[in-house]
Design a protein around this nucleic acid. Structure first.
Lengths: 118, 118
DNA sequence: GAAAGTAGTTTCCTCTAAGAAACTACTTTC
DNA sequence: GAAAGTAGTTTCTTAGAGGAAACTACTTTC
């Protein structure tokens, strides 16, 4: 008889593990937290605004990540009737629920830095 | 004069962004949260235990991720004086500080599932 | 009419994450 | 002495992440 998982074999753990995988697949990549964090801080930003705010990102990645986030309804994209055309990106209510998670991530990172130096 | 970042140009935001990058680099990859979560639940597990608990992982990835986590002092590795040789992996105090973050990640994922289905 | 600003897309390239399978090495049990 | 269990390492391969640079397309300002 082959040994089986014990700890993670309960329904609760199965759901938790699945949930973690879900979150990670939606929030994967180098830039999503930075983009979401920026849009939570400054609501309604254009493409070029984001390009300036998110330090180091290029047009291709920004474009792709914004599409991903919009598809998952974490951000909204609104084309304005201006000349020249402008676009307003903003966080959705749903996307804003990520604020505590981003805070945790930032706080943990800050503590890590301190513990490494001190 | 070239336009500059406004929102993310404050020292506070710079530190936050850096912290998020730090956390992500330490916790990157498909398996780290699963391994850490498992070690928080069941303390002291062997290599083969983890291989069984973390559903889907292979020996190569497990070995590599455990080394990463040990290097960053999130887990401890202790070789036991048994025959055959066994190894006990356990979470460190420091690694345990990730519990709130993992909880947030799991909770957000659960909510996401519900909102997609409901 | 050239420059600069809007918002992207496309192409080409590299590097890494990840996985499957085979292998080492040692010990105990059948 | 073969099987099964301990704990990994090594090799080979592929898919995707990410980045640099050039390009489209349209408008306004100098």
């Amino acid at each position: 008889m082959k040994k089986k998982s014990i700890i993670n074999d309960t329904p609760v753990c199965q759901i938790r593990m699945q949930a973690i995988s879900d979150s990670m697949s939606i929030l994967s990549g180098k830039w999503k937290f930075h983009i979401i964090g920026t849009l939570i801080e400054g609501n309604k930003l254009g493409f070029m605004d984001l390009l300036r705010e998110v330090d180091g990102i290029g047009t291709k990645m920004l474009s792709k990540e914004l599409q991903d986030l919009e598809m998952n309804q974490l951000i909204k994209r609104k084309v304005m009737n201006t000349k020249p055309i402008t676009v307003q990106y903003s966080i959705t209510e749903y996307g804003a629920t990520l604020a505590p998670l981003i805070d945790e991530l930032a706080n943990w990172g800050v503590k890590y830095r301190k513990s490494v130096h001190g």
